[in-house]
Amino acid sequence: MLEVRDIHSYYGKSHILHGVSMTLQEGEMVCLLGRNGVGKSTTLKSIMGMVRPRSGSIRFQGRELIGLQPYQVARLGVGIVPEERRIFGSLTVEENLLIGKKNALDGGDGAQAWTLERVYQVFPRLHERRTNKGRHLSGGEQQMLTVARTLMGNPRLILVDEPTEGLAPLIVQDVLHMLAQVRRSGVTVLMVEQNFKAAVQVADRFYVMGKGQIVFEGDVDALLAADEVRKTYLEV
């Protein structure tokens, strides 16, 4: 469904991604691991069109994404849940949800489509707080809202950046549960995490990044067996 091939991305003059490649199959939940500053977020932003790679190729369901604006990538069925959550603070919870509202694209099952009603059913807490301003939500509620807001666009692929960052352990479990639920509804998930323990619980496959490159690819067992990779690129 997604094929990233040898992309090189820059922030201004600094070269962040040195030829990143990865592939995702439909329905998978894949986790991108690695330390701070190795280019995980930049990889997601490159897919979304928020950072434009200078070379390489990103194909989503056969279409080249490089060169498209983020809104065009979103309309093809890709959604991003950014690291800083980026809730619209001056808007109510409900208005936050309505922004990204899009009907399901071709192939989207009518019964599975995300609507305001379905979001409120799955996230009753957001229903309770629907008239509150975004900036008045707690961290866990904001994380819920930012995921739900992206789901309102009925994406086929969702890019989730550090969903558990800064959350209490109990809330982390809620968020992981929510992502597993999203994936079960048929959405492909590419998640960036620093929290190794959280990631192993939910993902099918892992990529490990170090200094702008992919240094490991494999499933849970392979990752647990690869002591050297974990020591060099993950453990502090």
């Binding site: 983020p70 979103a74 980026r86 619209f88 208005e95 309505l98 922004i99 990204g100």
Partner: peptide, 25 residues
């Protein structure tokens, strides 16, 4: 209206509005 929601959201963070599928330009 939804147009109003989009404009207010764009005042907060136009890049995010763009990533949610709105033609911000």
């Amino acid at each position: 209206t939804r147009v109003g929601i989009i404009v207010r959201a764009a005042v907060d963070d136009h890049e995010m509005v763009n990533a949610l599928g709105i033609n911000v330009p």
